[in-house]
Design a binder for these strands. Sequence first.
DNA 1: ATGCGGACCTGTTAGC
DNA 2: TGCTAACAGGTCCGCA
Length: 273
Amino acid sequence: MPELPEVETIRSGIAPYIEGKAIKDVIVRERRLRWPVTRGLKQKLLGSKIAQLQRRGKYLLFTLPDGVLLIHLGMSGQLRILPRMLPAEKHDHVDIIFNGDQMLRYTDPRRFGCVLWVSGDPHQHALLADLGPEPLDKSFDGAYLFEASRRKKLPVKSLVMDSHVVVGVGNIYANEALFLAGISPFMPAGQLTLKMASTLAAMIKKVLKVAIKAGGTTLKDFVSAEGKPGYFQQQLAVYGRGGLPCLQCGAILTESRLAARTTVFCQHCQRQS
DNA sequence: ATGCGGACCTGTTAGC
DNA sequence: TGCTAACAGGTCCGCA
Protein backbone atom coordinates (compact mmCIF):
# COMPACT_ATOMS: atom_id res chain seq x y z
CA MET A 1 0.00 0.00 0.00
CA PRO A 2 2.29 2.76 1.08
CA GLU A 3 5.13 4.56 -0.59
CA LEU A 4 6.93 7.48 1.01
CA PRO A 5 4.06 10.01 0.76
CA GLU A 6 1.61 7.58 2.34
CA VAL A 7 4.00 6.73 5.17
CA GLU A 8 4.69 10.42 5.73
CA THR A 9 0.94 11.11 5.77
CA ILE A 10 0.53 8.43 8.41
CA ARG A 11 3.48 9.77 10.42
CA SER A 12 2.24 13.34 10.52
CA GLY A 13 -1.30 12.19 11.20
CA ILE A 14 -0.39 9.94 14.10
CA ALA A 15 2.33 12.03 15.76
CA PRO A 16 0.07 14.54 17.55
CA TYR A 17 -1.96 11.71 19.06
CA ILE A 18 0.93 9.74 20.49
CA GLU A 19 3.95 11.95 21.17
CA GLY A 20 4.28 12.36 24.94
CA LYS A 21 1.67 9.68 25.64
CA ALA A 22 2.39 6.81 28.01
CA ILE A 23 1.68 3.26 26.88
CA LYS A 24 -0.78 1.47 29.10
CA ASP A 25 -1.14 -1.86 27.33
CA VAL A 26 0.05 -3.78 24.28
CA ILE A 27 -1.87 -6.56 22.58
CA VAL A 28 -0.18 -8.80 20.01
CA ARG A 29 -2.62 -11.14 18.25
CA GLU A 30 -0.39 -12.31 15.40
CA ARG A 31 3.38 -12.43 15.49
CA ARG A 32 3.91 -13.90 12.04
CA LEU A 33 4.73 -10.78 10.01
CA ARG A 34 7.65 -10.39 7.60
CA TRP A 35 9.77 -11.00 10.67
CA PRO A 36 8.24 -12.23 13.89
CA VAL A 37 6.99 -9.46 16.16
CA THR A 38 9.64 -8.97 18.85
CA ARG A 39 9.14 -11.31 21.80
CA GLY A 40 8.28 -9.49 24.99
CA LEU A 41 7.23 -6.36 23.08
CA LYS A 42 4.72 -5.54 25.77
CA GLN A 43 7.38 -5.51 28.51
CA LYS A 44 9.60 -3.26 26.38
CA LEU A 45 6.84 -0.71 25.82
CA LEU A 46 4.74 -0.77 28.94
CA GLY A 47 4.75 2.40 31.00
CA SER A 48 7.07 4.37 28.73
CA LYS A 49 6.30 7.48 26.72
CA ILE A 50 6.79 7.92 23.01
CA ALA A 51 9.14 10.90 22.68
CA GLN A 52 8.77 11.32 18.94
CA LEU A 53 7.72 9.67 15.72
CA GLN A 54 10.16 9.83 12.83
CA ARG A 55 10.35 8.31 9.37
CA ARG A 56 13.27 6.78 7.52
CA GLY A 57 12.30 5.74 4.01
CA LYS A 58 9.12 3.73 4.47
CA TYR A 59 9.95 2.81 8.06
CA LEU A 60 8.34 4.53 11.04
CA LEU A 61 10.51 5.00 14.14
CA PHE A 62 8.79 5.46 17.48
CA THR A 63 11.42 6.78 19.87
CA LEU A 64 11.09 5.60 23.48
CA PRO A 65 13.47 6.03 26.44
CA ASP A 66 15.09 2.60 26.10
CA GLY A 67 14.90 1.99 22.38
CA VAL A 68 12.92 2.37 19.19
CA LEU A 69 9.83 0.69 17.86
CA LEU A 70 10.34 0.09 14.15
CA ILE A 71 7.26 -0.40 11.97
CA HIS A 72 7.02 -1.07 8.25
CA LEU A 73 3.66 -1.37 6.52
CA GLY A 74 4.68 -3.61 3.63
CA MET A 75 2.10 -3.68 0.84
CA SER A 76 -1.12 -3.79 2.81
CA GLY A 77 -0.35 -2.38 6.25
CA GLN A 78 -2.44 0.24 8.00
CA LEU A 79 -1.82 2.18 11.17
CA ARG A 80 -4.76 4.00 12.69
CA ILE A 81 -5.70 5.89 15.83
CA LEU A 82 -8.91 4.35 17.14
CA PRO A 83 -11.03 4.30 20.30
CA ARG A 84 -9.42 1.99 22.82
CA MET A 85 -12.15 -0.61 23.09
CA LEU A 86 -12.97 -1.04 19.40
CA PRO A 87 -13.26 -4.81 18.78
CA ALA A 88 -10.46 -6.35 16.74
CA GLU A 89 -11.14 -7.63 13.25
CA LYS A 90 -9.44 -10.34 11.27
CA HIS A 91 -6.13 -8.67 10.40
CA ASP A 92 -5.71 -6.39 13.41
CA HIS A 93 -2.39 -7.81 14.59
CA VAL A 94 -1.09 -5.33 17.17
CA ASP A 95 -2.73 -2.72 19.43
CA ILE A 96 -0.74 -0.17 21.41
CA ILE A 97 -3.04 1.32 24.00
CA PHE A 98 -2.44 4.72 25.59
CA ASN A 99 -3.59 6.37 28.77
CA GLY A 100 -6.88 8.00 27.92
CA ASP A 101 -9.24 6.54 25.38
CA GLN A 102 -7.05 5.93 22.34
CA MET A 103 -4.98 3.21 20.78
CA LEU A 104 -2.71 2.78 17.81
CA ARG A 105 -3.81 -0.26 15.80
CA TYR A 106 -1.60 -2.10 13.27
CA THR A 107 -3.55 -3.94 10.59
CA ASP A 108 -1.96 -5.91 7.73
CA PRO A 109 -3.79 -8.59 5.69
CA ARG A 110 -0.77 -9.71 3.69
CA ARG A 111 1.63 -9.55 6.65
CA PHE A 112 4.52 -8.18 4.58
CA GLY A 113 5.17 -5.49 7.19
CA CYS A 114 7.02 -5.70 10.49
CA VAL A 115 6.82 -4.52 14.10
CA LEU A 116 10.24 -4.70 15.74
CA TRP A 117 11.89 -3.47 18.91
CA VAL A 118 15.38 -2.07 18.42
CA SER A 119 17.61 -1.21 21.35
CA GLY A 120 20.50 1.11 20.61
CA ASP A 121 20.90 3.26 17.53
CA PRO A 122 18.19 2.23 15.05
CA HIS A 123 20.21 3.56 12.14
CA GLN A 124 22.75 0.81 12.82
CA HIS A 125 20.03 -1.81 12.50
CA ALA A 126 20.48 -4.10 9.50
CA LEU A 127 17.22 -2.91 7.94
CA LEU A 128 18.22 0.77 8.07
CA ALA A 129 22.00 0.81 7.95
CA ASP A 130 22.35 0.37 4.19
CA LEU A 131 19.49 2.56 3.03
CA GLY A 132 20.13 5.27 0.47
CA PRO A 133 19.46 8.98 1.06
CA GLU A 134 16.03 10.48 1.63
CA PRO A 135 14.74 11.71 -1.74
CA LEU A 136 13.75 15.07 -0.25
CA ASP A 137 17.19 15.66 1.27
CA LYS A 138 19.73 17.91 -0.38
CA SER A 139 22.12 14.98 -0.61
CA PHE A 140 19.84 13.37 -3.18
CA ASP A 141 20.42 15.30 -6.38
CA GLY A 142 21.37 14.84 -10.02
CA ALA A 143 25.06 14.40 -9.32
CA TYR A 144 24.35 11.68 -6.75
CA LEU A 145 21.91 9.82 -8.99
CA PHE A 146 24.26 10.10 -11.96
CA GLU A 147 27.11 8.65 -9.91
CA ALA A 148 24.88 5.82 -8.61
CA SER A 149 23.88 4.93 -12.17
CA ARG A 150 27.36 4.57 -13.64
CA ARG A 151 28.18 1.20 -15.24
CA LYS A 152 24.74 -0.09 -14.29
CA LYS A 153 22.82 -2.04 -16.88
CA LEU A 154 19.59 -2.41 -15.01
CA PRO A 155 16.60 -0.34 -16.13
CA VAL A 156 16.50 3.15 -14.66
CA LYS A 157 13.10 2.41 -13.09
CA SER A 158 14.63 -0.45 -11.11
CA LEU A 159 17.49 1.84 -10.06
CA VAL A 160 15.25 4.49 -8.53
CA MET A 161 13.10 1.84 -6.85
CA ASP A 162 16.17 0.34 -5.14
CA SER A 163 16.10 1.50 -1.52
CA HIS A 164 19.88 1.23 -1.33
CA VAL A 165 20.08 3.94 -3.99
CA VAL A 166 17.28 6.19 -2.74
CA VAL A 167 14.49 5.37 -0.29
CA GLY A 168 10.76 5.80 -0.61
CA VAL A 169 10.24 5.59 -4.36
CA GLY A 170 7.77 2.79 -5.03
CA ASN A 171 6.03 1.67 -8.18
CA ILE A 172 3.50 4.48 -8.51
CA TYR A 173 5.89 7.36 -8.02
CA ALA A 174 8.66 5.75 -10.07
CA ASN A 175 6.26 5.60 -13.03
CA GLU A 176 5.14 9.18 -12.46
CA ALA A 177 8.61 10.65 -11.99
CA LEU A 178 9.94 8.97 -15.14
CA PHE A 179 7.03 10.35 -17.12
CA LEU A 180 7.62 13.86 -15.80
CA ALA A 181 11.32 13.52 -16.58
CA GLY A 182 10.64 12.25 -20.10
CA ILE A 183 12.76 9.13 -19.59
CA SER A 184 11.78 5.57 -20.54
CA PRO A 185 11.55 3.24 -17.53
CA PHE A 186 13.48 0.66 -19.58
CA MET A 187 16.51 2.80 -20.33
CA PRO A 188 19.65 1.16 -18.94
CA ALA A 189 20.67 3.29 -15.95
CA GLY A 190 24.21 3.63 -17.23
CA GLN A 191 22.96 5.50 -20.29
CA LEU A 192 21.62 8.42 -18.24
CA THR A 193 23.38 11.72 -18.88
CA LEU A 194 24.05 14.05 -15.96
CA LYS A 195 21.31 16.28 -17.27
CA MET A 196 18.79 13.42 -17.38
CA ALA A 197 19.79 12.30 -13.89
CA SER A 198 19.30 15.85 -12.63
CA THR A 199 15.86 16.11 -14.21
CA LEU A 200 14.89 12.73 -12.82
CA ALA A 201 16.04 13.57 -9.29
CA ALA A 202 14.11 16.85 -9.49
CA MET A 203 10.94 15.09 -10.72
CA ILE A 204 11.18 12.47 -7.96
CA LYS A 205 11.29 15.29 -5.42
CA LYS A 206 8.46 17.11 -7.11
CA VAL A 207 6.07 14.18 -7.37
CA LEU A 208 6.72 13.10 -3.77
CA LYS A 209 6.21 16.63 -2.43
CA VAL A 210 2.95 17.13 -4.28
CA ALA A 211 1.73 13.68 -3.20
CA ILE A 212 2.54 14.40 0.45
CA LYS A 213 0.55 17.63 0.19
CA ALA A 214 -2.38 15.69 -1.22
CA GLY A 215 -2.24 13.21 1.66
CA GLY A 216 -0.92 10.35 -0.47
CA THR A 217 -2.52 8.19 -3.14
CA THR A 218 -5.60 6.08 -2.44
CA LEU A 219 -6.01 3.49 -5.19
CA LYS A 220 -7.92 1.06 -3.13
CA ASP A 221 -7.62 1.10 0.60
CA PHE A 222 -5.00 3.57 1.77
CA VAL A 223 -6.26 5.65 4.69
CA SER A 224 -4.43 8.05 6.99
CA ALA A 225 -4.27 7.61 10.75
CA GLU A 226 -7.64 9.33 11.00
CA GLY A 227 -9.16 7.09 8.34
CA LYS A 228 -9.11 9.66 5.55
CA PRO A 229 -8.10 8.75 1.98
CA GLY A 230 -5.40 10.53 -0.02
CA TYR A 231 -6.12 12.58 -3.12
CA PHE A 232 -3.01 12.30 -5.25
CA GLN A 233 -4.57 9.66 -7.49
CA GLN A 234 -6.44 12.49 -9.18
CA GLN A 235 -3.08 13.80 -10.39
CA LEU A 236 -1.57 10.53 -11.64
CA ALA A 237 -0.42 11.05 -15.21
CA VAL A 238 0.47 7.46 -16.12
CA TYR A 239 -0.04 4.97 -13.29
CA GLY A 240 -3.34 3.18 -13.84
CA ARG A 241 -3.78 4.88 -17.22
CA GLY A 242 -2.41 2.21 -19.59
CA GLY A 243 -4.33 2.26 -22.91
CA LEU A 244 -5.54 5.82 -22.29
CA PRO A 245 -4.20 8.89 -24.07
CA CYS A 246 -1.05 10.60 -22.80
CA LEU A 247 -2.02 13.87 -21.14
CA GLN A 248 0.90 15.56 -22.85
CA CYS A 249 0.76 14.34 -26.46
CA GLY A 250 -2.39 12.22 -26.79
CA ALA A 251 -0.57 9.03 -27.83
CA ILE A 252 -1.85 5.83 -26.22
CA LEU A 253 0.09 5.02 -23.05
CA THR A 254 1.89 1.67 -23.06
CA GLU A 255 1.40 -0.71 -20.14
CA SER A 256 3.93 -3.49 -19.66
CA ARG A 257 5.84 -5.32 -16.94
CA LEU A 258 9.29 -4.53 -15.66
CA ALA A 259 10.76 -6.66 -12.87
CA ALA A 260 7.26 -8.05 -12.28
CA ARG A 261 5.79 -4.58 -11.67
CA THR A 262 3.23 -2.82 -13.82
CA THR A 263 4.96 -0.11 -15.81
CA VAL A 264 3.13 2.57 -17.75
CA PHE A 265 4.78 5.08 -20.03
CA CYS A 266 4.43 7.14 -23.18
CA GLN A 267 6.58 5.90 -26.05
CA HIS A 268 6.42 9.34 -27.60
CA CYS A 269 7.24 11.51 -24.57
CA GLN A 270 9.69 9.20 -22.78
CA ARG A 271 13.03 8.66 -24.49
CA GLN A 272 14.42 5.16 -24.78
CA SER A 273 18.08 6.29 -24.85
C1' DA B 1 29.59 -7.50 -7.95
C1' DT B 2 25.36 -7.31 -10.62
C1' DG B 3 20.79 -8.25 -11.85
C1' DC B 4 17.10 -11.26 -12.05
C1' DG B 5 13.36 -14.14 -10.33
C1' DG B 6 11.25 -16.23 -6.43
C1' DA B 7 9.56 -15.87 -2.07
C1' DC B 8 6.66 -14.19 1.59
C1' DC B 9 0.82 -13.58 2.25
C1' DT B 10 -4.30 -12.46 1.56
C1' DG B 11 -7.92 -10.21 -0.91
C1' DT B 12 -10.02 -8.59 -5.03
C1' DT B 13 -11.05 -8.67 -9.71
C1' DA B 14 -11.07 -10.21 -14.53
C1' DG B 15 -12.00 -13.87 -17.44
C1' DC B 16 -13.81 -18.22 -18.79
C1' DT C 1 -22.97 -18.37 -10.37
C1' DG C 2 -18.65 -20.37 -9.62
C1' DC C 3 -13.99 -21.56 -10.33
C1' DT C 4 -9.21 -20.09 -11.55
C1' DA C 5 -5.59 -17.11 -12.57
C1' DA C 6 -3.58 -12.87 -12.32
C1' DC C 7 -2.57 -8.97 -9.88
C1' DA C 8 -1.84 -5.50 -5.85
C1' DG C 9 1.12 0.38 -3.14
C1' DG C 10 7.44 -3.85 -0.74
C1' DT C 11 11.81 -5.77 -0.40
C1' DC C 12 14.84 -9.53 1.15
C1' DC C 13 17.29 -13.49 -0.38
C1' DG C 14 19.46 -16.93 -3.26
C1' DC C 15 21.16 -18.02 -7.55
C1' DA C 16 23.50 -17.59 -12.06
